[in-house]
């Protein structure tokens, strides 16, 4: 699920950026630092959408770096149990397959894949129904439901299932 929230961060800025463009430099550095990171609490920071305010800078002794407390708005993505996500398959093996929904990695184990789909090993390992009409392989797009999340301080990992109504392949790359 996506959230638009306000976060705070202390930005250290090198003295060479001081000047007319200090604020711009600060913002671009913030984006570079923050976007794409993951915190267990808030989830993945997808994008910085604005700066709320920039506090007074404190000059570090010895280095000349200045620390600015910056409040910024950002969009975060945090997966929840029971959430339905659309994802792209990244790897298939006999244990199941891995997929990515944006920044989050999801593992679908083989017993959470419908029983009528069988693992086919080979050059392009895949799960295929007996009549071959549905195939899950690398780069397939799959709609799945998250049934468990593992949230560490800097990492979120999910396991999902496609064994439910309206879940499974939503776009076969071979057909495109």
């Amino acid at each position: 699920m996506f959230f638009h929230i306000v976060l705070e961060r202390n930005m250290q800025l090198h003295p060479r950026y001081f000047g007319r463009n200090l604020r711009d430099n600060l913002v671009s550095k913030l984006m570079k630092d923050v976007e794409g990171t993951c915190s267990g609490r808030h989830g993945f920071v997808v994008a910085v959408t604005g700066i709320e305010n920039v506090g007074k800078g404190i000059i570090r002794d010895g280095t000349g770096f200045v620390t600015f407390p910056v409040k910024y708005q950002c969009v975060v993505f945090r997966p929840f149990k029971g959430e339905i996500l659309e994802s792209v398959v990244t790897m298939v093996n006999k244990m199941g397959f891995f997929a990515e929904a944006g920044p989050v990695q999801v593992f679908v184990s083989n017993h959470l894949i419908p029983d009528d789909m069988e693992f086919q090993s080979g050059d392009m390992p895949n799960y295929t129904t007996s009549d071959g009409s549905v195939k899950i392989q690398k780069d397939s797009e799959v709609r799945l439901k998250i049934i468990g999340t593992r949230v560490d301080a800097t990492e979120i990992f999910c396991i999902g299932t496609i064994k439910d109504d309206f879940l499974g392949v939503i776009n076969d790359p071979a057909a495109v």
Binding site: M91, N93, M95, G96, F98, Q105, F107, S109, G148, T149, R150, F157, I159
Partner: peptide, 9 residues
């Protein structure tokens, strides 16, 4: 368990 899957491949 499956939640460790990423580290196990």
């Amino acid at each position: 368990n499956a939640l460790d899957a990423l580290r196990l491949i």
